Amino acid sequence: MDKYDVKKTHKRLYAPSAKDFTIVDVPEFRYLAVDGHGDPNTSPAYANAVAALYGVAYALKFTSKKTLDRDFVVAPLEGLWRADDPNAFVARRKDTWDWTMLINQPDWITDDMIRTSAAAVAKKKDNPALESVHLLTLTEGTCVQILHRGSYDDETPTLDRLHNHYFPDHGLTFNGDHHEIYLSDPRRTPPEKLKTVLRQPVKAV
């Protein structure tokens, strides 16, 4: 049985250079998603959202393999981050952030499968975020991205370079939410070794 792995199928999108910004075209993807607000380091809603996403993702993997004979690697956690002022990201004003946490899904996963898997997980563990897990279809199109190595809080210089230097030098501006892809498990990886894809949808000024 072939095992689908989005990181291998779309390697260019999940393994960018850490040296320079690159422009990519991101096609339509489908995600498990949960929306929320606030500092991810302190918000119980954020912790519940991440736990719910992983719980449902692994339940879907099991169901897909058992009932459809189609297996896949559970994709890394991703996040869409937004704020009224984009400088909130550079300044790390986390209490003002809205977020949508994501896990990429193969195109054969359906809404019904997600609802059934979320209900099965809810029987085993009480988590209010399970009721909010939904399927999100997202087409980001033209994006600029780079691989960040190090602590999440050390992203500021890279984001400042992107927003205040790369954008004006290339005639670009924002065209969607700031997107992060967490390639490392922060529970097992020292902060200085974390790998995170920083992605920003863009358009010409």
Rank of each mutant, 00 (worst) to 15 (best):
T22K: 11
P86K: 06
R92T: 03
K19A: 15
K61Y: 06
D98K: 09
H165L: 08
V6A: 13
D39L: 08
T196G: 00
H37T: 11
L172C: 01
E78P: 11
A52N: 10
N164H: 15
M1P: 10
A59D: 12
H37G: 10
T156F: 02
H165C: 09
K61N: 08
T63I: 08
N41F: 14
A120G: 02
V205I: 08
V73T: 14
N48Q: 15
W81H: 07
P128K: 15
I103L: 05
L77A: 08
D84K: 13
V56L: 05
P201T: 00
Y58G: 11
A45M: 12
L60S: 07
L183G: 06
K203G: 01
S43G: 07
G38N: 11
A120W: 00
H37S: 13
P44Q: 13
E28W: 06
V133N: 04
D85Y: 14
D185P: 05
D69I: 13
N104M: 08
D85G: 11
E155Y: 04
K8R: 15
K94F: 15
D84L: 10
L172E: 03
F174H: 03
P106R: 07
E140R: 05
K125D: 00
N104E: 03
K66C: 13
T116H: 07
G150R: 07
L13H: 12
N87W: 12
G141T: 01
D71N: 13
F21Q: 05
Y4I: 07
W81V: 13
R12W: 14
V56C: 04
T158R: 15
P191D: 07
D25V: 13
T158S: 08
G36P: 09
G79S: 10
T137P: 00
V144C: 08
Q200P: 02
D85H: 15
F29H: 10
V56M: 07
L135E: 00
N127A: 01
V74H: 14
T116E: 05
A83Y: 10
P128Y: 13
T196Y: 03
K65Y: 13
P168K: 01
K61M: 13
G176N: 01
W108D: 05
H170C: 00
P27C: 03
S151L: 05
T196Q: 00
D169E: 14
A47F: 11
H178D: 06
D185S: 07
